[in-house]
Design a protein around this nucleic acid. Structure first.
Lengths: 202, 202, 202, 202
DNA sequence: ACATACGGGACCTCCCGTTGCT
DNA sequence: AGCAACGGGAGGTCCCGTATGT
């Protein structure tokens, strides 16, 4: 009973992962429970049990799951990189590789959900917002660690996330990694200059 | 007489405009014919007549319509601005104003459609791709007119469109214009440096 | 004006022929005006002109057309054959050849229409009935010419038409000409015995 | 408990029976889900549950159901009759009685479906084919039991089924039981002669 | 924790008939 | 004679949430 608070049963986990993947490919509305139980191999009857709040609850869980995964990856990029720009490069390069290897079928689950909801699902919307903010926070901290002052770091982080989502969108539409590559270069330039300036100002 | 060239009857035009608006708010799947005929006041029976190709044909027309509108606006921004950066500022500022005045209900129709389609609608996907490319082309020409060499101009233009789409997404999710404003500033900085460099290199 | 009584314009004729073919393949309800104008290459606008009575009028014309064609063929079979049984054989053989060469796609338009109508189209139903009766009449006359007395000839003719329609149905479903061949043999036997009996009775 | 073997819930059974009746009267395309749920009193939502394969799956079930019913009746006719011809007479007589008492509204569901399908529903087509074959098989066995050798019995059985379907079609179109009665007589004659011959050959 | 079944609604597509304008 | 456009309706499919038994 008590442990069902976190509700991380195997079935629930599989559903969330499948939902995350399906949202990336088909969007929120484009993903049906039917698809989900078929792809994840989970039982129909568990839907109500694990997600009494309906599809929105699944959406929230999947977005949070996806946000966490990318957040961890971002942190590891920053830790292993010698500069924020290098971390940025690693991030974008990993994404373009995935894009190509999966034939541009999968994009960003959070973006897909964020653009596919109406006013009736405000909780889901704010979950998406929080996901974006968490990524910005991680990036901002990384930039601050390189000496960039807070407001500037925050703005740069937001720009990076925006550039990431936007260029991912463009690359998927064009079925080419060029937009992501070009955007990555531009953002790195921006970040390196900011780092350089803050260093000289010190 | 003359208007029958592109076969745009009044009804068809109204449908396309309504679709463009609804796609901005609800996405592609989230927009139903029911909504469309109600909002546009057009007759059910005209659907098949004007769009025998079904919803995808409507999507294509609406995306092209939206792409044309923004393209014209971009051109006018570049014409009236003293520098590409200023044009960028005008563009983003106009968008944030719209966002706020419409309570963040409407986003970018092209992005909404691009993220909401599956593999069965490849024509629609390529239409979205062309829309993005047309905007990049306009921006790239503006940057070249300021002395930035072609490949660099193209890459910057792509970054700007990516930044626009991404920050619009973030702003809508957060219900705040901050992401767009911060991204606009960063992009302007990037563009101004590029212009400065190309000028000094001359 | 005057000649429009028979209304045999080129367009009307093409529509009727196409309808006859489509009814054979898809039935009455399964045939749409759209298909008809596409396959026949006739103009949309001519529908109302040539068939103001709607689809039922087209159905009547097509059934009568088909009935006339088969009637003529039956008569020619009887004329060229040395006995009714031989005529029967020719008739069934010609049909099985068509079936095979057209991959069992086309059946009998009259049967297809007769089974596909509801109570609202009683005129069409009686047209189908008349078509069947005309074939029976032709066969009955042929049998009488071989000396079979009227009531018996009529009953045999009905049996032949029933056997034809039924075995055609079976052959199409099974995608094999066996049912038609076997039925043809049985009917020929029946007819030959009747002829023999009437001859010995004379 | 036991009934869940073939997964025939009460609802599913009611749907199949209603479909069988409606197909007899209106054909396959002429029968809509709307009609079916209204007449059978079953809920809309159960459609997808019981027939996830759509209308074709319903058609298959209804055809098999109808084929089984007639098959059982045929067997009982053969068991209770002193000769195959007598069984044939019982069969046709029962059908003409039904026809008249129901004002010629209902025909043969299998024939109606077989004539109303296009190439996209090949499974349904083969189901109809199997239904016809099952009836032929039953009749053929009955004829063999009367001493008629196999190939001949098979051919005669096919002729009987063809005559049955064809004359039913004619009777419905003419709104008269005469075609069925006349065909029945002719088929009985045929069968009796075959029986006589095989008996004398013995 | 799972499974079968219900229940209503909405979706997109397509159809057929009619109306004014060439 | 021909045609684009209108107009309403119904077709089949699918979805999401819930209820009832294991």
């Amino acid at each position: 009973m008590e442990r069902s608070v976190t509700s991380d049963s195997e079935t629930r986990r599989r559903m969330i992962e499948a939902a995350s993947r399906l949202f990336q490919a088909c969007g929120y509305r484009g993903t049906s429970w039917r698809q989900l139980v078929r792809e994840s191999g989970t039982p129909w009857g568990s839907i109500q049990h694990h997600f009494p709040g309906g599809k929105e609850e699944l959406g929230i869980a999947a977005v949070e799951h996806g946000a966490g995964l990318l957040g961890q990856f971002l942190e590891s990029c920053l830790v292993h990189a010698s500069s924020p720009a290098e971390a940025l490069r690693t991030w974008f390069a990993a994404t373009t590789e995935l894009l190509e290897s999966q034939d541009f079928k999968y994009g960003c689950a959070v973006a897909a959900v964020a653009l596919d909801i109406d006013e009736s699902t405000s909780t889901l919307q704010s979950t998406c917002s929080k996901a974006f903010e968490s990524w910005e926070g991680i990036l901002a901290r990384g930039l601050q660690n390189s000496g960039i002052p807070q407001p500037r770091a925050q703005a740069l982080a937001t720009t990076c996330v925006a550039g990431f989502e936007g260029s991912l969108l463009l690359s998927r539409a064009r079925r080419s990694v060029d937009p992501m590559r070009q955007t990555a270069e531009a953002l790195c330039e921006l970040v390196e200059q900011a780092v350089g300036r803050s260093r000289s100002a010190r």
